[in-house]
Amino acid sequence: MARRRQLYEGKAKILFEGPEPGTLVQYFKDDATAGNGAKKGVITGKGVLNNRISEYLMLRLQEIGIPTHFVRRLNMREQLIREVEIIPLEVVVRNVAAGSLATRLGIAEGTRLPRSIIEYYYKNDALNDPMVSEEHITCFGWANTADLDDIVALALRINDFLCGLLLGVGITLVDFKLEFGRLWENDEMRIILADEISPDNCRLWDSKTNEKMDKDRFRRDLGKVEEGYQEVARRLGILPEAGSRDLKGPEVMQ
C-alpha cells in the first residue's frame, strides 16, 4: 500500500493526503457508531458497500448538474475527492417522520410530511450536534445568506432526484443528512456537495413493507445490519464484483 499522510479520522472515514494538490483520499471504515459515539460496533463490509453506493449516487447527481467533491473511486474502500472547506453544518432533509423529528414533535414514525423539511445542525461532537436556525448560522458566520440559498436549492434538488431514483428500486427515502463545502478555484468560490450519501446517513425503507435498510438496524439492535446495506447495493445494481471482503487501508506515514 502507498504511504500517505493521514489528515483526519472520523467515526466512519479517514482522510489522507491526495496524490495531487487540492485532492484528498477518502477511506471508508467498517466502524459504526450511534448516539454520537455512545454506541460503537463494526458492520462487516460496510466501508466497501458505502464506497460503492456513494460513488454511484454522486455520479448520478453529477449527471444532473449537482457539483460534488467526488472525482473517482480508487479501489474497494477509497475514493479520490476534491479538497473543500467544509461548512460546519449537517443539513437534514426529511420527507417522512422518523428519528428525532418523530420524538421531538410526537408524530407517529412513518407519517408522510406535508412537504419536505430542511433542518440544520451545528457539527460539533462535544455539543452533540445541536439543532440551529438560519439566525444562528449567519450570526456566528458559519455561512452567509447567499451560501444558505445555494445549500437549500442544492438540497431540494438532491432530494427530488434521489426520491425518484430510489423509489424506482422500491426504496423510500425517509430522510438523509448532507454536508457541503466551499470549493475555491482561483478567486471564485462555489458551494458543492461533500461527505457521502449512503445507508450510514440516509434512512431507507422498503417501499412496500417499511423494512429498514440503513444504520437504524444497528442503532435499534434490529439485526441483519450487513444484509440491509447489501440489499440497498443489490437494488441499485452495484454490489462489489467480489463481495464486500475486507481491504486494508494505506499505510500511514508517521
Rank of each mutant, 00 (worst) to 15 (best):
E17V: 11
Y121H: 13
S244P: 13
Y8S: 13
K212I: 14
F28T: 08
K13D: 06
C139I: 04
M76W: 08
R220G: 04
V169W: 10
A97H: 05
D246N: 12
R60Y: 05
F161I: 06
G168A: 07
A143P: 03
Q62F: 03
L156W: 04
A143Q: 12
F218V: 10
I137G: 05
R73E: 02
E9W: 01
S54P: 08
Q79Y: 03
D175Y: 06
T33S: 14
L113G: 11
Y8N: 10
E78L: 02
E226Q: 14
A98T: 03
G243R: 11
S244G: 00
M189C: 14
L247C: 11
R94S: 02
M253N: 05
R94N: 00
A38S: 14
A108S: 13
E227I: 00
M76E: 14
D150I: 00
K40S: 12
V252E: 12
N51I: 12
H136S: 04
Y121I: 00
L167G: 15
V232K: 04
A233E: 14
V42R: 02
A143S: 08
E78F: 01
E20P: 03
K29P: 10
E119R: 03
G164S: 12
L173D: 03
N124C: 06
R4W: 01
E109H: 03
E135C: 04
D206V: 00
P130D: 09
M131I: 05
F140Y: 15
Y8E: 14
E85K: 14
L61W: 07
K208E: 15
A242G: 12
W205A: 10
R217S: 04
I171L: 13
L247M: 15
L59I: 14
E135N: 12
T138C: 13
K224S: 07
T111G: 08
L204G: 09
M58K: 07
E196K: 01
D125C: 04
I64C: 03
I66Y: 02
D206G: 09
M76H: 11
A38K: 15
N128Q: 12
D206F: 01
N201H: 09
L193K: 00
W205R: 12
P88M: 02
G37I: 13
G99T: 00
E231Y: 08
K46T: 11
G18F: 03
V42A: 01
R217W: 01
A233T: 11
M189K: 14
T111Y: 08
W184D: 02
P21M: 05
A38Y: 09
D206K: 06
E135V: 11
R104A: 05
L57T: 08
A108M: 10
I64F: 01
V42W: 00
K40T: 14
I192V: 15
